[in-house]
Amino acid sequence: MTTLNITFKNDDTTPRFPVYHKYGGQFQPQPAYVFLDLRDGECGADYNGEMGGVPVVQWHNIVLTFPISAETKADQIEQIINDNAEKFQAILDDSEIVWDGSNNVGSFGDKATALLSELGFYADGNPEGLQSYDSQVCMIDEEYFAEWVSDSSLDNYDLDSLAEDLHNCDGDGNAYFTDSMNSKDAIYTQLLDIWAERLYSGYDVPKEVAQTLLDEGKCDESAWLEELKEFANA
């Protein structure tokens, strides 16, 4: 009998959104899931790293995946796994890996089949899978940040204090910074990039911001550097 082995850890080293991953240029994050491996009972959480496909062990139902929102936090994933641990063990007890004449595939008894459907494994099962999707989370990453920041926020020309203020907004209105953006320094860097892009697009740059861009070494191409100096000395 295969024993359930929960390998997902929620500790100080675990990212806040451990299964959130969005490739550059994509509008949606990669599909995320809790997985159960029939071979050794491993149970954890991950995202599908492939574009438009799934790994062969998932295709052949050897590693089972149960959809969760990509925006699920680490403590929520921990609870989801623990809440369903008995069901995962029951699936392992009533399943096996068999040879179908071409490949090794997962095979399930009646009890396992019913549990898989209940947990959202099959497309015609519970559409909520392992969790409710009623609460929609907005994730703010590097690509979305410029759109998320309001024009009124940019009226604060002290970029250091603005970065701190924006970081303190994390979680407001169910909007969270992704792990890579969840620091004052990361937000500050994005604010510099926003103003640099405004300069390139022909906007006037406030004196205080122009000086900050000069101090940070942004826009150091000779043409833009001279224009920045003009704004800074205005």
Rank of each mutant, 00 (worst) to 15 (best):
D204H: 12
Y144N: 09
L130S: 02
A210V: 09
I194R: 08
D179L: 07
D134T: 03
I91R: 08
K207R: 10
G125L: 12
G106V: 07
G129T: 07
D193S: 11
D185V: 13
A112G: 06
G109N: 10
G129R: 04
A223S: 05
D124C: 05
L115A: 06
A186I: 13
T212M: 12
T189K: 09
D155Q: 09
F231P: 04
T189N: 15
T212P: 15
D141V: 00
D172A: 02
L214E: 11
Y122F: 13
G171H: 00
V105P: 00
G120S: 07
F231G: 01
Y188P: 01
V105L: 05
E226W: 10
L116P: 00
S135N: 13
Q190F: 03
L166C: 14
C169N: 03
L119V: 01
N168E: 14
L119D: 05
S150Y: 00
G101N: 07
S161R: 14
N182C: 11
Q131P: 04
V149K: 11
L154W: 04
N168D: 13
L119M: 12
N156G: 05
D110L: 02
Q131S: 07
L154P: 11
D193W: 09
E142K: 07
Y176N: 00
V209G: 14
I140P: 05
A114Q: 05
S132E: 07
E227L: 06
W99G: 00
A146R: 15
E164D: 15
E216G: 01
A223R: 15
Y203L: 04
Y200A: 07
G171N: 01
T189V: 06
A223E: 07
A114N: 05
L225F: 12
G171Q: 00
G171K: 00
W148P: 03
L228I: 05
Y144L: 04
A163T: 11
L154A: 01
S132W: 02
K184A: 05
D134F: 08
I194D: 06
D155V: 04
Y157H: 15
P206M: 08
Q190G: 04
L214G: 12
D155M: 06
G217I: 10
L162A: 11
A196G: 09
I194A: 01
E216D: 09
C169M: 05
D124K: 09
T113E: 07
E142W: 01
S107C: 01
D155K: 08
S95Q: 08
D172K: 06
D155Y: 07
Q190D: 09
M181E: 14
D158C: 06
I140D: 02
S180G: 12
G129F: 13
Y133V: 11
P127R: 02
M139Q: 06
N103R: 02
W148K: 10
D100A: 03
E216S: 07
